[in-house]
Every structure is written in C-alpha cells, then in structure tokens.
Simulated scan of single mutants.
Amino acid sequence: MKYLFLFCFCLMSSLLFSQTEMPLYEGPIPNSKDVPNVETSEVRDDGILIISKVTVPTLTAYLPSKETATGKAIIICPGGGYWLLAAGHEGHDVAKEFAKRGVAAFVLKYRLPNGLAMEDKSIGPLQDAQRAIQMVRENAAKWNVKPDQIGIMGFSAGGHLASTAGTHFKREVIENPKKTSLRPDFMVLVYPVITFDKEVGHSGSSKNLIGERPPQGMIDLYSNDKQVTAETPPTYLVHAKDDPVKIENSYLFEAALKQNNVPVSHTYFEKGGHGYGMINPTSEVRWMDDVEKWMKAF
C-alpha cells in the first residue's frame, strides 16, 4: 500500500508539471576562465539544499500542464549572499508551487562571483540572469509562455540579482544578436538585498560581488534603488520588519518605484526574520497567495 501511494503521488506530480534542467549557454560560458568544475551540493541538517562554487550555470524548467497554464512565467534566483545558493526552499520548491498554479517557473542556478573563475566577477550573475530572460523569451512558444508575461523573482541576494536584472536591462552584458528584450515584465523580491550603502546594505553580498573596498561608483551602480526609472518593471516586495537584512532595503526600493510612478505592492511582516522561503511561520498570511492575485492583474 505504501508503494502504491508513492507511485500515485509521483504520477500526480508528473501530471501537474514537467521538469527539465538545461545548460544556460549553448557554447562557451561568457566571462569565464578555464577552471575545474568543483561545484558541491548538500542537504543540511535543517533540510535546506545548499549549492556552492557554481561556475557552470543551468536553468531548470517546471512547466505546468497545458490545461492549467496561464501563459505567465517566472525566473527564480535563490539567495545565499552571492556565496552559495539556497536552491531548495528558495528555488525548486517555489518553482513547483508556481507550476501547480499554472505559472511556468524556471530556477536559475547562477554563477557565484569568483575572481579565479571569471574575468569580471561583478557581472557574472547578471550575465546569467539576462541570459535566462533571453532564453525563456526566445523559447516562449515552445514552453507555452506569453513573451510579454515573463517575470523574475529573487530571495535575499537573489533579490539583489533580480532587481539588478530589472533595473540594468539596458546595460546588456551578454551577446544578444536577436535584440531580444532583456527587461523582465514584473519582479517579485523576497527579503531582498537592494542597496550596497553601508548603513543599510548587506556587507557580505556587497563584498562577494564587487569586492571589499569598491569605489563609490560601483556601490552606487549596484545600489538598485538608485537605478530605478519609469521603465522599471512593476514589483512585489516581501519583507519582515525584524529581518537582519534590513527592511529599509525594500522601503528604499518602494520609494524609488513610487517616485517614478512604477506600480508596487508588498507584504510586510512584523516578524519572521530572514530566509523563511514561502512560509513565514510567525504569520498566517501566505504571501504566495497575495503574489498570485497580484500577478493576475498583468
């Protein structure tokens, strides 16, 4: 009986969505040095899947059935301080949930900044985020996705990467021969790192991406509240007021969006800390439900 249940569960899961992992680049990985692939992955005692030392990026697609597909898609950037990737509860688990709700979801295993493996570590993650948007948009028909309904989502430092993709899309750091739009159509940023300002920003993420003593120009460039324009995509923010990644990150971004008349909504929790993924255990509010309702407006 136990094995029959497991078989039925797996069969039902396969009917809900299909899963495929793909290399992000068809040819040589841009901005990469010739180094061994020493990527590691482990499941910690608390059940969290951690991937480290990523130098070969991939995109894993979770596609809903044709019967449930809404035509919307979202690219998910797990967090980890630009040091590692919390690829389970901030990646694959979230993608499965979106697929159940009819949204094609793509987990981006992006390269982690590494001066030994990259010519310029500050643009490595952004290259992968732009390539993911390019890849999904150019394959929209194949994956039953509307090309103007492709969003990006990020948790923590993945939120920094997602917000970089959403504010730096005119600064193309990949080859784009088809002139495909690299602008995401919407953003969902969950307890995001936004600014690298020393008073508010997350020093670990900043150090790993742009170095220990970056010039002020680099700090400003990657403080994404300072890069917002009227063309920045509509955004949904999720943050807890007691988060060690200060909620002021989201406040700054929200203020910049409003100043530029960009639609913005949010779920702000009184408590919850950092890294809770889809479910904040201190609240009955399920922010994924709120995001789903918000996404239906586009």
Rank of each mutant, 00 (worst) to 15 (best):
Q130A: 03
A61Q: 03
P113K: 00
P64E: 13
Q134D: 15
A86H: 00
G124S: 14
V136F: 04
L59I: 12
W143R: 07
G79Q: 08
L84R: 09
P113V: 04
Q127L: 04
V107D: 01
I48W: 05
P125V: 02
S122N: 08
K53I: 09
L85T: 03
S65Y: 01
T68K: 08
V56W: 15
A87C: 02
L49H: 07
H92S: 11
I123P: 00
P147Y: 06
K146E: 10
K100Y: 08
I48T: 12
P113S: 08
S52N: 14
A117W: 04
G88P: 10
A140W: 04
L112A: 11
I123E: 02
R131V: 08
D120Q: 13
M118W: 00
A132H: 03
A117M: 06
Q127G: 05
D148F: 06
A73K: 02
K66E: 10
E67V: 12
L63E: 01
K96C: 15
P147R: 09
K72I: 04
I76K: 00
T70A: 06
L126D: 02
N114R: 04
T55L: 13
F106I: 04
H92W: 03
V94K: 06
A86D: 09
V145S: 01
A87M: 14
S65M: 08
M118E: 14
D93L: 14
I75Y: 00
R111A: 09
D120C: 10
L59D: 11
P57W: 05
L112V: 06
G102S: 07
V107L: 10
T70V: 07
Q134A: 05
I123K: 02
V54Q: 09
Q130D: 13
A104D: 07
S52C: 12
I51W: 02
P113C: 09
L59A: 13
Q130T: 05
V136P: 01
T70L: 01
G91S: 13
D93I: 15
A129Y: 00
H89V: 06
V56K: 15
W83C: 15
T68I: 12
A69E: 08
F106D: 11
A61P: 02
P64V: 15
S65I: 06
E67T: 12
M118T: 09
Y62S: 13
E119G: 09
E67Y: 08
G81W: 03
C77L: 11
A87K: 02
M135Y: 07
L63P: 01
A73R: 03
G115D: 11
I76N: 02
W83M: 15
V103A: 07
L85W: 03
D128T: 00
E90N: 00
L108T: 09
K142S: 06
D93P: 10
L84I: 12
A141C: 10
T58C: 10
R111Q: 05
E138P: 03
A104Q: 05
L84H: 09
L116Q: 15
E90C: 07
M135L: 15
M118V: 13
K142I: 11
P64K: 11
K72W: 03
D120T: 13
F98H: 02
V145E: 05
R137Q: 07
G80I: 06
K96I: 14
G71C: 11
G81I: 03
T70W: 01
I133F: 13
E67C: 03
I75S: 04
L84S: 14
G115P: 03
I75N: 00
L85H: 09
